[in-house]
Design a protein around this nucleic acid. Structure first.
Lengths: 251, 251
DNA sequence: CGATCTGTTGAAGTGAGTCAATAGTGGTGG
DNA sequence: CCACCACTATTGACTCACTTCAACAGATCG
């Protein structure tokens, strides 16, 4: 039976409430996530051995290298995936938002650390139980394959950013990917809320936080965007931003 | 029925011969590749709608953005996967060697171009036929998922290289990944043959060919390796190379 | 209202890129 | 067999974009 595990110091106010009796019933991310391919009776079986976890900001969910005992579906909030070098240099390999899935691994060990960027809620599946499910439901396995392929394509696009793009192109590409996600969820694609800090963006884009900050300033003075607050962005010229991201503007 | 399509200008000498009657029978990569999980009768069904392609060096197999009509298994030679920016900047997202699989895509279109680095041989599967197979054989779908997960992990490791490592660390990491592959295939891990040019390595590591060349020279003078020819490398100190790759050596 | 953390801006340094010249390699044909 | 050609790799000199280091400004929260 699904249980709700609420972390002590969670700032409850910031997360929408959840029905304890029927956690999947009103789930707003069900269509987006792995569960979307499951029929009602399959979902019921998956729910056994599943619980809901709520976490405050800046909590570590898994450590790089730890054995992978659970898989997760993000239902609220956002996460940061990161890999560390021995001397502390950090590369963020991705961000996860509601609807995203966490748990694609090779050797049942986590290739990266996962931390919350803000108060977040996740559905937590036991790995063994989940693998029993994928064994029984080929369309779930297929869905998982599809998600892995999708993540792989995103990782390859990120390689182009990290290996060959200028700072302006990197930040423009990043903002565009956020706006695409917003659009696909029916949100206003011209208004972005950044749940990550400048340093996180820097470690995602292979820059320093100073360079990220300076590039934001250049975009502001160039009329590409406005900052309503440090993390609320209005995109004023998405078309020019796209040109910037592809390197079609020399500046 | 499987047919052999030999490209005109192929330098036949450089590829080992292949039995036309039983192309899978003596296949040396069968255990490594997708086919490895299939029983004999399943393999027979997969072979219908499959043919063998042989290509000379520097041939384009697929163009970035083209619809994906085939999937491939590399049985000999090596390939380069690359993405281009409008102004010609190139990021190589990976290299493929014998046993590797090509064809994991999201929207049935190729996310990157694929070219031969040297004369190569591939098994070519029709996409529709292959998808029928994965629909019938869950263990094939599972195998595909596993390969996607593996590629994803490799892509994430490459992000660390591109985002945060110094040129020496990048080249050391690259050489180590090649030696690991050699070891896993039973080859001598101290001797590497590079089938790619300096410019390819540069575009894989996010550097210029000049920097790659200079870094090779530093490794030579540092006693880490010897170059028997431009593309035949002997690793003299794998342990120090590993330390170099992880940034444990300041130099 | 003050303490603390995050973000922005400035000044200076540097390491990889760029441009250019030289050396090496492999292949072809006389 | 050697001479030539085209291509690739190496090395050198110089430049500059991003980092680093440091100061300042703004935001957030008790």
């Amino acid at each position: 039976m699904a249980t709700l595990m609420r972390e002590r110091c969670l700032d409850g106010q910031t997360l929408p409430p959840l029905s304890r009796a029927h956690p999947c019933a009103g789930c707003e991310v069900r269509g987006l996530s792995v569960c979307g391919v499951l029929a009602e009776h399959e979902l019921k079986r998956l729910r056994a051995g599943t619980d809901v976890v709520e976490l405050p900001a800046d909590k570590t969910i898994v450590h790089e290298g730890d054995p992978s005992e659970h898989l997760y579906s993000v239902t609220a909030g956002s996460l940061r995936l990161s890999k560390l070098l021995p001397d502390g240099r950090r590369q963020i390999t991705g961000f996860l938002f509601k609807g995203d899935f966490l748990g694609i691994t090779v050797h049942d060990s986590h290739a990266y650390s996962v931390e919350t960027l803000e108060p977040s809620r996740l559905c937590r599946f036991g790995r063994e139980h989940f693998e029993t499910m994928t064994g029984h439901f080929p369309h779930l396995e297929h869905r998982l394959y599809h998600m892995a392929a999708h993540e792989l394509a995103a990782a390859q696009a990120q390689m182009v950013i990290l290996g060959r793009k200028t700072p302006k192109e990197r930040l423009a590409s990043f903002l565009l990917s956020l706006t695409h996600r917003a659009a696909s969820q029916g949100d206003d694609p011209r208004h972005l809320h950044l749940s990550m800090r400048r340093g996180d963006i820097a470690d995602f884009l292979g820059l320093t936080k100073e360079t990220v900050s300076r590039t934001f300033t250049q975009f502001k003075t160039g009329g590409l965007l406005r900052l309503h607050s440090q993390d609320d962005i209005e995109l004023l010229d998405p078309e020019r931003l796209r040109a910037q991201a592809e390197g079609l503007i020399d500046a």
